[in-house]
């Protein structure tokens, strides 16, 4: 009897995904070999779970690999990969973690996952040079407020409900010192991540700084961003924050609006 392709696909998936090898057995020379489908079942799961642990290294370290593995099993079956590349698989993992059993033992875990996700996003974002300070010297001071400045494509701003940034940072790589989780407490924290050269950098922001960068990210002009920040804290030091961001490479070297306005000014 010839094995029909459509039947084979279904039978194979029944065995590998559904764990039921009966139909697959009818496609084989030796029915008893159907349980070899376990090899595929393991590889499929392992591939996705490994991709997840690669994407969320700080969560693996903070949660411990046994707990991570148990959540990964549930995640891979609930939200299996769809795109034809496992790089970036697990986009929804932080939200999934929120509802995972046992996460209340370490409720800051989803926030650590949000930082891991943002790190990966920054790491593989489009390439762009960073804006150099001299590019801005031509801008007349009274025009700065109207200026819209594009952030580097790698910039991510993450809003957290736990102050997990330091603990996350310490747990990002195997060389890092594991921080006691008791240093993490409930409280809003905003973190800026961006890629400078080949390295992803991160920095916790004050509420005013966060408002400033968020406004820029929402494509609002510099003056409006400063106003947002000052409305939150009158101590917001515009020139210090701006110079620091410029120095750190948070702005994109390609600034079409700046080029256009420069022509107008001349």
């Amino acid at each position: 009897m010839t094995v029909q392709l459509a039947f084979f696909y279904d039978a194979f998936l029944d065995a590998v995904v559904g764990g039921d090898p009966r139909a697959l057995g009818t496609c084989l020379e030796d029915r008893s070999a159907a349980d070899n489908a376990l090899v595929y079942r393991n590889t499929v799961f392992r591939g996705a779970a490994d991709a997840l642990s690669t994407a969320y290294p700080a969560v693996v370290r903070l949660a411990g690999s046994a707990y991570f593995e148990s959540v990964a099993i549930a995640y891979v079956s609930a939200e299996p990969p769809q795109r034809r590349s496992l790089v970036g698989y697990g986009e929804t993992f932080p939200e999934f973690l929120e509802a995972a059993p046992g996460v209340d033992q370490a409720p800051y875990m989803p926030d650590a996952a949000r930082l891991d996700r943002a790190w990966l996003g920054a790491h593989r974002a489009a390439d762009a040079n960073a804006l150099a300070a001299p590019e801005l010297t031509a801008v007349p001071p009274d025009r700065l407020a109207d200026l819209y400045l594009r952030l580097h494509p790698s910039v991510r701003i993450v809003e957290l409900g736990w102050t997990v940034h330091e603990a996350w940072k310490a747990n990002r790589d195997a060389a890092g010192r594991e921080k006691e989780a008791r240093e993490v407490c409930r409280g809003r924290q905003s973190v800026l991540l961006w890629r400078a050269g080949h390295e992803v950098a991160s920095q916790a922001l004050t509420s005013a700084e966060a408002a400033f960068f968020r406004a820029l990210q929402e494509k609002r002009p510099l003056g409006a961003a400063v106003a947002e920040a000052l409305a939150i804290s009158e101590h917001f030091n515009t020139s210090l924050v701006f110079a620091g961001a410029l120095e750190a490479g948070v702005f994109d070297a390609s600034q079409p609006e700046l080029d256009q306005k420069r022509e107008e000014w001349w």
Binding site: L5, F8, Y40, T43, V44, G47, P80, P81
Partner: peptide, 24 residues
């Protein structure tokens, strides 16, 4: 094959070596 029904398995699944599969 490595994908079906919109799901990607990141593994290399086998095929029957039939005329139908060859043609496909």
């Amino acid at each position: 094959w490595s994908a079906a029904g919109g799901r990607y398995f990141a593994d290399l699944f086998p095929l029957p070596r039939t005329d139908e599969a060859l043609c496909w």
